[in-house]
Each structure stands twice: as structure tokens, then as C-alpha cells.
């Protein structure tokens, strides 16, 4: 359809059709109400306009049944819209288990992206088609927002806390990537492209791209370089907990509470080791704030995660 003015962005992910359908339904409901209200207002303004010989105003105090009607009908409609909108939201907010994890770091004014296989790119995101992909995102400075209109998905990227979003691209092509949360002078130039490729093309791209080490391997090297392994030896009686098989498990803390051993906990423990100490261990660990960047923390996380993944030589949880 060549109308000159496009009405919909490209439909390129599994979310696009559900969101567009909801949009069209909302537009239709709105048209019905607009036509009704505009029709009545214009109709009354003409039919009952004051003029010589007009019959004059008929005083009506109200009509309870009518008022109940136009309380109940809008209420019913908005509740249906609420349920529908929430269903779509659950779909968008719940990634499938097999989603591949990519890492995104936002900073003024660029997007840094790392593939699970180690390739890094800036302001570009190459992804394979028909593959659920989850982005684990963090900002190095202010709040940004990762937005791909063709996928109908966006999520704020916060400093100091991970946020995630997922999508499954359904159509090969190049799409806009925007920062949607105002982040300073060059906010409107914190943009890029998402390139959706057929799996074979994606493999070819991966092999052609400057293949760095995978985040896991970088993490393993960092783990040694930062001397984490002097305390976290993995041996009995070590000064720090053993990470094998720990990922996703509940960990007992020294104050009696417990916490899930996940990305946020690991990040916090690297930066503020005293915040949540595992039961049975002393507060010996120094902070690594200022020594490791967000990218490196993500690599360390990838490494620790692999220690609980039998497929990567880790222990079963």
C-alpha cells in the first residue's frame, strides 16, 4: 500500500501483530465514540439552535437509567481493554526459557552490544530470525531506553540495575534502533540499526565479524586477573563461597535472610561486597567499584553462570 503517509511501522517481530491488532481495535472503539459524540453535539447544536420561534429549553434534571448506562458501558469497555492490554503485556514481559542472552550497555550516546559468542558491536545489533533473544541491559551513566519500533518493544536501561527485554524477529531486514528516554545533548543521535538475518547469513556474519572471546571466556580471564580465585578457590575451607552449581539457587545470608544467586546479586556483591554476605563467611572481600566496568561485570556474570551449566563444563545446580 503506497499511501505516501505510512500508518504502521514494519511488522518484524512476534509482538507486532498482537500490538497492531489491539491498536486497530482501540481505534475502532474510538471512532465509534467520536462519531457518536460529534454526531450528537453537532446534531443538538443544529436541531436545538436558538432562533425566533424556537420552542425553548426543556428542563431535564437527569435520568438515572441513562447515567447508569453510560457509566456501565464505558466501564465494561475499559475493562475489556485492560484485560487485552495486560495479556499482550504478559507476552512481552515473559521471555521463553530458550532465549539467547545478549548484553547491552548504554552510555551517552552509544549502544554497546555483545553477542553470546563474543562479537561486539556498537549501535548495531545483528540477530538471527525466528530465534527468541533476550537482552540484558545496563547503563553506565543516565537512564536510556532501548526501542525497536518494528518489534513494538522498548525497555528503559537503568544505571545500577539490570533490566531485560526479549523479542523474536520474524522478518529479515534493517530496522531502526532508538534511545527513547531523554539522555542529554545527543539523545536523538543515540540511534542505530537492528539487522535481522537468516540463520545462515547470521552465522556468516558472526564468523566475519571481529570475533573476540566469548563473554564467558573473558569473564574467566578476568576472574583470574582480578585475583578472585585466591579466595573463591572452589575448595573446602576457602575464604569465599564456591560458585559451582550455585546459579539461580537460594543463598542463605549471614543476617538470616536469603537471596537468589543471580545477575543483580553478583553485580551488587562485586561493587558492594558487604551488602549481603553469605552465611558462614567473613566480610573480607574488598569492593571492585571503579576497577571493573559494566561490560566486565557482565563478562564475570557470564563466567559464573557457566559454572552451573553442565553444557559448558559447569556443575549441575
Amino acid at each position: 500500500m503506497q499511501t505516501g503517509i505510512p500508518l504502521f511501522p514494519e511488522n518484524a517481530s512476534t509482538f507486532a501483530t498482537p500490538v497492531d491488532t489491539l491498536y486497530v481495535a482501540l481505534v475502532l472503539v474510538s471512532i465509534v465514540f467520536m462519531v457518536l459524540i460529534a454526531g450528537l453535539v453537532i446534531g443538538f447544536a443544529i436541531r436545538y439552535r436558538t432562533r425566533p420561534g424556537s420552542e425553548g429549553a426543556k428542563q431535564i434534571h437527569g435520568a438515572t437509567s441513562l447515567e447508569l448506562l453510560w457509566t456501565a458501558v464505558p466501564l465494561g469497555i475499559v475493562m475489556v481493554i485492560f484485560v487485552w492490554g495486560t495479556k499482550v503485556w504478559f507476552q512481552i514481559s515473559r521471555p521463553p526459557a530458550q532465549a539467547e542472552q545478549y548484553y547491552v550497555t548504554g552510555k551517552q550516546w552509544m549502544w554497546k552490544i555483545q553477542h553470546p559468542t563474543g562479537q561486539r558491536e556498537i549501535n548495531m545489533l545483528h540477530v538471527p530470525i525466528n530465534q527468541p533473544i533476550q537482552l540484558r541491559m545496563i547503563s553506565e551513566d543516565v537512564i536510556h531506553s532501548f526501542y525497536i519500533p518494528a518489534f513494538r518493544v522498548k525497555r528503559d536501561v537503568l544505571p545500577g540495575r539490570y533490566s531485560t527485554m526479549w523479542f523474536e524477529a520474524t522478518k529479515a531486514g534493517t530496522y531502526h534502533l532508538f534511545c527513547a528516554e531523554y539522555c542529554g545533548t545527543k539523545h536523538s543521535q543515540m540511534i542505530g540499526s537492528v539487522i535481522v538475518m537468516e540463520p545462515a547469513d547470521y552465522e556468516r556474519w558472526l564468523s566475519g565479524a571481529v570475533a573476540g572471546e566469548s563473554p564467558r571466556d573473558q569473564g574467566e580471564k578476568l576472574f583470574a586477573a582480578l585475583r578472585c580465585d585466591t579466595c573463591h578457590t572452589g575448595l573446602q575451607g576457602a575464604r569465599g563461597p564456591d560458585f559451582k552449581g550455585l546459579w539461580g539457587q537460594k543463598v542463605q545470608l549471614s543476617d538470616g535472610s536469603s537471596v537468589t544467586f543471580d545477575e543483580d546479586y553478583v553485580r551488587e556483591s562485586i561493587l558492594i561486597p558487604t551488602a549481603k554476605t553469605v552465611v558462614g563467611f567473613q566480610q573480607l572481600m574488598p569492593t571492585y567499584a571503579g576497577q571493573v566496568g559494566e561490560d566486565q561485570i557482565l563478562s564475570l556474570i557470564a563466567y559464573l553462570k557457566s559454572l552451573s551449566d553442565p553444557a559448558q563444563g559447569g556443575a549441575k545446580p
Partner: peptide, 26 residues
């Protein structure tokens, strides 16, 4: 009446979460 009704109706669009995710901050 005309303008506020459009504004109010589109407010319902934005209250529907699945829709809002796409158009938030646009």
C-alpha cells in the same frame, strides 16, 4: 468536547500496557 474526547480516548490506549510499551515516550 471534540478535542478532549480524543485526548481521553487515547489515554485509554496508553493505559493498556501491551500497547503502551510500543508508544511510551513517543
Amino acid at each position: 468536547l471534540g478535542l478532549f474526547t480524543v485526548g481521553g480516548l487515547t489515554g485509554i490506549f496508553l493505559g493498556a500496557m501491551g500497547f503502551d510499551i510500543h508508544v511510551h515516550d513517543t
